[in-house]
Design a protein around this nucleic acid. Sequence first.
DNA 1: TATGAATGAGCCTTCATTCAT
DNA 2: GATGAATGAAGGCTCATTCAT
Lengths: 212, 212, 212, 212
Amino acid sequence: MNESVYTKRGRPPRSDGPDTRERILDAALEVFSERGFEGATVRQIAAKVGVSDPALYAHFKGKQEIFEALIKLAGPDLLASAGTSLALEAVPMQIALPEMFGNIVATWSTPRARAFASLVLRMGPDGLGNVLQDVSARLRPVFAAWQAGGDLRKDIPVDVAIWQVIGPLAGLRIAYLHGQASNVDIEHATILAKTHLKTVAQSLSQTRNEEG
Amino acid sequence: MNESVYTKRGRPPRSDGPDTRERILDAALEVFSERGFEGATVRQIAAKVGVSDPALYAHFKGKQEIFEALIKLAGPDLLASAGTSLALEAVPMQIALPEMFGNIVATWSTPRARAFASLVLRMGPDGLGNVLQDVSARLRPVFAAWQAGGDLRKDIPVDVAIWQVIGPLAGLRIAYLHGQASNVDIEHATILAKTHLKTVAQSLSQTRNEEG
Amino acid sequence: MNESVYTKRGRPPRSDGPDTRERILDAALEVFSERGFEGATVRQIAAKVGVSDPALYAHFKGKQEIFEALIKLAGPDLLASAGTSLALEAVPMQIALPEMFGNIVATWSTPRARAFASLVLRMGPDGLGNVLQDVSARLRPVFAAWQAGGDLRKDIPVDVAIWQVIGPLAGLRIAYLHGQASNVDIEHATILAKTHLKTVAQSLSQTRNEEG
Amino acid sequence: MNESVYTKRGRPPRSDGPDTRERILDAALEVFSERGFEGATVRQIAAKVGVSDPALYAHFKGKQEIFEALIKLAGPDLLASAGTSLALEAVPMQIALPEMFGNIVATWSTPRARAFASLVLRMGPDGLGNVLQDVSARLRPVFAAWQAGGDLRKDIPVDVAIWQVIGPLAGLRIAYLHGQASNVDIEHATILAKTHLKTVAQSLSQTRNEEG
DNA sequence: TATGAATGAGCCTTCATTCAT
DNA sequence: GATGAATGAAGGCTCATTCAT
């Protein structure tokens, strides 16, 4: 993998890449997302960076710390990142919701973002649950505003409305937008997300015509 | 953990329960779902069963085989199991869909089922993706029948309709119905699922008002 | 290997062979000679007998004891067995020596004897050295008698004479007459042994014609 | 064994010698020759080197590879090494044969060579058979030349002649010149070898008297 | 900073052996 | 006698980590 044949003790002439710390995190993201924390080995990460494993210890205190640094990075890069960071309250729901599509699926489709998705997945239920509840909490004022303004039907609890929006998206991300996703997967997810957001926007906004 | 101080090479004087194989699988499910395949150790499983680790090797060829046996068991116990095994085509969608709730969330709430959910989660994207695509495929004829019969709006592609139904459920399961779920989580999920199914049934069936 | 499908606790209806102890030793000889003491496992032996491993413990105290029983059997069956047990002193050397061929190589060529040879080989230098010294000791009076009687040249020390006879034979046995020997090996050894004994008998008996 | 009580995870403050790979092979030779491949443990080898067992894995891929490295080294150090590498064809047999003694037994008597002998012995019949056949093959042209030149009696097949020379030597090596050989053993072997070579040279060269 | 060599801990697995039936 | 299930011991090997350079 590493073609350099420099073999001597001590520091090699010069490190060929910029910011080794960054490269370590990149490699770690890949390895951790593919194999999970325990399944990944420090050697694999080091190999991917192109250095020997003790080198990592110059930048991080250990495997655990690399992982945690990754998690810290993951936060803003997750579900949260896309639409939820915008000032959506100001935009009418009918427009804001489909709008999220462009942001969200595009954002989620990058290799890095997909690797993060896999990473969180691998972390077990806690990792995922936290993210979702986090996003849910962030969206609540937005949806409440929409409901107050009449954009969102009043007969649906805000929580349920939120869930109807982000639930399928979360499922989508997990099922189709992970590290190993193929292009077909991504396209499939794109269509599903697009249609989902249009439909759900519609059904959440429209006043019911008949009740039973 | 084991207070007995019997120390001799061979088999101990009395083993307390039969059906060790079953108990191994139970313990393994728990441990694997909590820590993932690599994170789990044979020792932990054996300890949970209350035997020494070599004992497992009388029943399974190795760690891998225990895991695989678990996966095999997981099939019927997963997403699929609940509503999808019924002959739903015969039932009107408006009734069938909410009906699934009783089956599904109840089924998913058992500790065993939740452990399985965590297990599959831990298996990485492949595990999950397969399950969802499996369920999707199984539901397709049902939904198609509904659409042909007029129960399901014709302006929504069957795939999207299915996803709108199971997408939030999948997310739910992952976010709230995993091995470590608290009672609050479960209740939360129950309400979400119930309302979701009612709402989605409605919005999938009702003819559009032609709004825009 | 064992076609019987009787599977129930306790003793099976009847053991199909005679003298299990004997069969165990046979199997053990085979396994030990193929893999050495540590390389052999109790299970392999038991499997070859067609019983389960704990069954061996009804006949022997353990692996070690089986091995020792084998060694005890090996003694008479080894180098010693063939010619050396006869009353060779009475026979003229020129006749006795070639005569040994019929006994020795024939005896050594049986699968059992060859397995024993491998067994002793595997035991390390001690096993082999002991055997050779043993044989040497047994032959000494015979050769001394021959030398006294004029059959054996007086200018060769008895020890050397013995070694010239049995040395090649020992090497032969080890190199060609072991457990895995092919028929070609055996034939080769046969010829070598035959010619060797004839030649050595000649050169040990004939008075030297010239000295320098 | 190691009195230092330094206990910390990584590398210890100072390692005392270089050339660990060499030292591992030395230790391994000893252990393998004493106990055979299966009987030897990686931990024993490491202990003899004075390191912990994982250290070996920095130099060899595993137990098997250590063993194989040893076998590779064994080649030149075995039966072959001594006389057979010389250009013996040029030397008259009567002189060359006894000459081998100085080389061979001296070479075989070194602790290392004796350990190798035990090692090969432990490898079972294959190991030994190969060596002997190898040597036999190497000597054939030499003996053929001698026979053609009249040094070697024409009434003895070359193969048999070779065997009469090396057979006792092989037996000697196995019986007396192994890893655990005492000084007495070595002396005994030395005398036997010396006399053997002189006698055999004589009897292979002298023309028959036409005795019967 | 980065490396090679080394380490303690621990993992999966096999083995000889034993108990209760 | 013979069996299935279980056990303590130990083996080979991997891993994260550390020291000296």
